[in-house]
Design a protein around this nucleic acid. Structure first.
Lengths: 356, 356
DNA sequence: TGTTAGCACTCAAACTCCCTGAGTGCTAAT
DNA sequence: ATTAGCACTCAGGGAGTTTGAGTGCTAACA
């Protein structure tokens, strides 16, 4: 594997990404920076094919990169351009929103921006609320025997749920219960708010247990919500407008996008690129997925990435992903100290990404 | 137009819906209940074609219904089966949910169920919160100078938003403001909660205006939210798995589904069937949309329907739509007095005069 | 007058055959 | 080690052919 062969491999990848057609020796030879004849290129390409970096759709066609070829290109060969200052500014603007910012809103903007910039589907799996702190618990009477429980986190997330009790509560009961909740839950990390902990709490106030059970259950559910990966998904349409992906596979994929979480969860650092090769895998065939983690303080608290065709301009899109993951890390990490902004509108059940 | 011709038209529609292939005279002649020869059928079909109810994809193919043909079939010819009791029970179960039922949840369940049952995309445009009553307004401190405003309606909708103030409120200020809001807003119909009304209110408490402005603005926004059509959409995947619809058109459609509201808004009664014929229209070509209104008390407060291929088993799906719209009407109308439950039994089996 | 059998006609779809051209591998010359 | 040249391969596209489902029309029949 000499220098020139690598250069030719890179050229094939880039040319193929650009045109979508198998690329022949003549085209490569005519490229600036190659400087050898088509015949020489042919010899090298034959070698690269033997090594498994290229393949031919059929005998008389040009070469196309294999997954192994893409991988080598991405890991060693490509040179992603640094984002110029103006570009960064543009990206920052896409993350911003007119109201003050919450983590949730930030994630949404980032996903939308990523989908738009890369013309791929974009996905963010966010676990950051889990590493927030409960800043407020409220129980609000909302009708005959109906009560709304409300959980607010330091990250600005607001979750609510209405519960029905068997009996109405007296004001004293309500105050007592509210006080109890405030004392025991406010300031507690969401991560610590496990079901067991809740059970301990309810045991501690067993006198009221019978009556309050649905409220406690409601709070459990809300905290379970907060501890769970929230999946944000944008740009389905970009998948559909992509010729090389099978429409039915896309549909199947979108239906099961929850399963993405397991892929996004995997621990790694830096940028990770996966290819939809294994037909048993739920991922779309002939697709690729590029992911990066972001952090909050010292924890990895989420992953963001894109899903698109394997024929993708990696050198262009990877810097976007890197920039966003870094930016999100910065923004949500600093957020801990200063109070969270205002402007969120969380709502029970609303905005489940339109069911696929 | 004699009896037999109508029977033949109906047979062509049903056969075409069943097979998806243009249907020829021989097939029709062999159907039970026709009892004439293929030649006779041919003569009748030629007549039906002249009248614009059928057409031929090409000279040597069978006949396919035109839009006019579908319309006649739907309005006069088909006989939708009454839903048997067990079927109704199954549908009721699909509407129910384990937790306490809210209008919002009901709508969601109905949309999902409709998409699943009909294998089409299902859509519900809901305006019912507008005809609910504010049952609770709360302002909750949620951090330094951050307050969450919360609106709960009699229908069970909960909206919240966090706002940032310039200064922290004293307890007295908070109590006073809360009391003021409760007194002036609770029990008020959401429809009456216009921005002007809010302005009047704020004028009435102008002393606090400067400080409270963001909160008032927040409440305005929440009530604006409540007064707006909420669009619920399910079953995109069903559109994509439908051969006869153009994938790109589907994508375009899904991107602009907000524009559906204008179509769903139109006032009509009973069941309405529309066809995606006009290419300027944003609707998908070769598709059809079946909609029905539902009411709350005396107002039409929403529409629900499905979008699928024109080649659709109308006789099967229309009863579902009728049943759901009746059921939703019953459930959200009774809700005013007693809290909504799941389980009332109502008759929705009448044949609605469809509307073109 | 309405219905039917028969026949000639039509035309999309599937298939075959052939040509073209891009691209290759191999070999001999440089 | 590189290159020019040549024979070879093969997908894609166009033209011609066949097949068969389905039609309209007409003449005979009840």
């Amino acid at each position: 594997m000499n220098e020139r062969k690598l250069k030719i491999l890179a050229a094939v990848v880039e040319e193929y990404v650009r045109t979508g057609e198998p690329v022949g020796s003549k085209v490569i030879a005519s490229l600036p920076g190659i400087g050898v004849s088509a015949a020489t290129v042919r010899n090298d390409m034959a070698m690269l094919e033997q090594l498994g970096f290229l393949e031919q759709p059929h005998t008389s066609a040009g070469r196309v990169p294999t997954i192994k070829g893409y991988r080598l290109y991405i890991e060693e060969l490509m040179s992603p351009p640094a984002l110029p200052g103006e570009e960064r500014q543009r990206l920052d603007e896409m993350l911003a929103s007119q109201g003050p910012m919450t983590e949730e809103l930030l994630i949404e903007n980032a996903t939308t921006a990523l989908a738009e910039l890369t013309k791929c589907a974009a996905v963010v799996s966010d676990l950051s609320p889990k590493f927030s702190v409960i800043s407020k618990v409220e129980v609000i009477p909302a009708g005959k025997r109906v009560y709304v429980v409300l959980l607010i986190t330091s990250g600005g997330a607001i979750k609510n749920k209405s519960c029905r009790l068997e009996f109405d509560l007296t004001n004293e009961q309500l105050d007592l219960f509210s006080g109890f909740l405030a004392e025991n839950l406010e300031g507690v990390s969401v991560a610590d708010l496990s079901d067991e902990r809740m059970e301990d709490l309810t045991a501690a106030m067993s006198a009221y247990m019978m009556t309050m059970a649905p409220l406690v259950e409601g709070i459990c559910e809300l905290s379970r919500d907060l501890r769970q990966h929230a999946l944000t998904f944008r740009g389905e349409k970009n998948l559909f407008s992509c010729e090389e992906l099978d429409k039915m596979e896309i549909v199947r994929f979108i239906e099961h996008k929850d399963e993405l979480v397991s892929l996004l969860d995997a621990s790694f650092s830096g940028i990770r690129v996966m290819f939809g090769e294994d037909p048993n895998n739920f991922v779309i065939g002939n697709s690729s997925m590029i992911v990066s983690k972001y952090r909050k303080g010292d924890h990895d608290v989420g992953s963001l990435g894109i899903i698109g065709p394997m024929r993708l301009d990696y050198a262009k899109v990877i810097p976007y992903i890197e920039y966003f993951s870094q930016k999100i890390t910065d923004l949500i990490s600093e957020e801990g100290e200063s109070a969270p902004g205002s402007g969120s509108d969380t709502d029970a059940g609303q905005k489940a990404p339109p069911n696929g």
